[in-house]
Nucleic acid binder design. Structure first.
Length: 422
RNA sequence: GCCCGAAUAGUGUAGCCUGGUAACAUAUGGGACUGUGGAUCCUCUGUGCCGGGUUCAAAUCCCGGUUCGGGCCCCA
């Protein structure tokens, strides 16, 4: 039997209901914040993704050569394509430019729960502003977006790469050292980090202090550690302004400063953040983002950019874990012709209801009333119309409420007004 | 890419250790039943992931592969 390829999935109707709900819900939040939707191609020129991350990323890409010999790749994420599109045709748009997107992405990874080779991302980019209010809004949007979906338990952690870089400089750490240290910081493996710092000729005293700063959410502790670096101090003050706005203007209090948030991709700079759903366990990260620099790399005029991406599939898993009840759009009316001579009138009624925005279906298997009622029940239909010759003599039909079992005789012209109350 | 576990009707499971006719529940289709039977009863169809090996005989034992799940690596 032919199966779906490794790491990919089919989405039957009951899954698609959840996915569409989430898409509509998220799109509504994005648009309420003044964002416009954008869509880019599923595949791009390979160099778009190797430009910053280097050739090694090809191992994690679905990369291929087309019949014209072009080196292409299925997109592994959407930030680079959106910025490519901006540079290519949107540079003269009024600023700030606020874009959001949904799209399937592809990575050649080992699949596990919440992790697939084809997965969906939702996300956004803000181009043309790096004011504190813009950054605060980005944080607020990410948090609000996930909250609006119905998620109860999420954690927002905020870090800052400018401050981390300043600390690296202060500890006289070289680029090569950072490559070893950053992954350890990202994974919060502080015991290993301590040993690695020692290998990098950092004194135990400084190393311990650094590790403490990485774990604290106390701003004064961070400030005293970076007291002799003006850039870092300025950045910290900016961050405080942002957090102040987040708290007092956007009224979002649930966040933690966590300097160990450093993100994987190296085009980020300044403020970075992640949102976790603890219910998901090992693969718990739902959202990641921050400020980054990609526009000049793609040949555009330098402009501030920031954004975030949300793991759409994981958001659904998290909602399911929390026992969230997804809204389930149902068929409004099922029409049962008592016999085949009732087919024409049944179809006419269905069409009439459909034209009034009431979803309607009729028995197409020529089943008896009993079997049809059972079918309507299995489909969780609200109302059933039974069309039979006895009532039809008086231009009426039977309207049955499937919840209560109550039945009434309704004149044909009154069906629509009777059902409109649903 | 690495380590561990799993895979049996559409779905959920039993049987596997100790090789011998593949089973149960549920769902689907049909019927009892030519208008109320959302019930009940009857019934058809439908199952061993793939490939090799051992054996008179493999769902069962062995090997390889595939996919899924758990954990690494990496990341969303």
């Amino acid at each position: 039997m032919v199966q779906v390829p490794r790491g990919t999935r089919d989405f039957p109707p009951d899954e698609m209901q959840k996915r569409r709900y989430l898409e509509h819900n998220m799109a509504a939040t994005f648009t309420s914040f003044g964002y416009g939707e954008i869509q880019t191609p599923t595949f791009e020129n390979l160099e778009l993704f190797t430009a910053k991350s280097g050739e090694s990323i090809i191992n994690e890409l679905y990369a291929f050569t087309d019949k014209g010999g072009r080196a292409l790749a299925l997109r592994p994420e959407l930030t680079a394509p959106v910025i490519r599109c901006y540079v290519e045709r949107l540079q003269m748009e009024p600023k700030p430019l606020k874009l959001f997107y949904f799209g399937n992405c592809y990575r050649y990874d080992r699949p596990q729960k919440g992790r697939y080779r084809e997965f969906q991302q939702a996300g956004c980019e803000v181009i043309g502003t790096d004011t504190c209010e813009a950054t605060a809004e980005l944080l607020a949007l990410a948090y609000t977006l996930l909250r609006n979906t119905g998620l109860k338990n999420i954690r927002l952690n905020i870090g800052n790469l400018t401050i981390i870089s300043a600390i690296f400089k202060k500890l006289h750490l070289l680029k090569d050292d950072q490559k070893i240290l950053l992954p350890l910081i990202d994974k919060s493996q502080f015991d290993d980090l301590k040993i690695a710092l020692r290998d990098c000729n950092v004194s135990d005293q400084m190393g311990d202090a650094f590790i403490e700063v990485l774990q604290t959410s106390d701003v004064t502790k961070i400030r005293s550690f970076i007291a002799d670096d003006t850039d870092a101090k300025t950045e910290l003050t900016t961050m405080e302004t942002i957090l102040d706005l987040l708290k007092n203007a956007f009224h979002i209090n649930e966040y933690e400063i966590k300097l160990s948030i450093v993100r994987g991709l190296d085009y980020y700079k300044g403020l970075v953040f992640e949102i976790d759903a603890p219910v998901l366990g090992a693969e718990k990260q739902l959202c990641g983002g921050g400020s980054y620099d990609l526009v000049p790399l793609f040949g555009g005029t330098e402009v501030p950019t920031s954004g975030f991406a949300i793991g759409f599939d994981r958001t659904i898993l998290a909602l399911e874990e929390e026992g969230f009840l997804f809204p389930t759009p149902k068929l409004d009316v099922f029409i049962i012709p008592v016999n085949q001579t009732m087919n024409t009138i049944s179809i006419q009624i269905a069409q009439e209801l459909r034209s009034h925005g009431i979803s309607a279906d009729f028995d197409q298997l020529r089943r008896g009333v009993g079997k049809s009622l059972k079918y309507a029940d299995a489909k969780h239909v609200e109302k059933v119309i039974i069309v039979g010759p006895k009532e039809l003599e008086n231009k009426t039909v039977t309207l049955r409420d499937m919840k209560t079992g109550n039945q009434e005789i309704v004149a044909l012209p009154d069906i629509y007004t009777k059902l409109k109350k649903i």
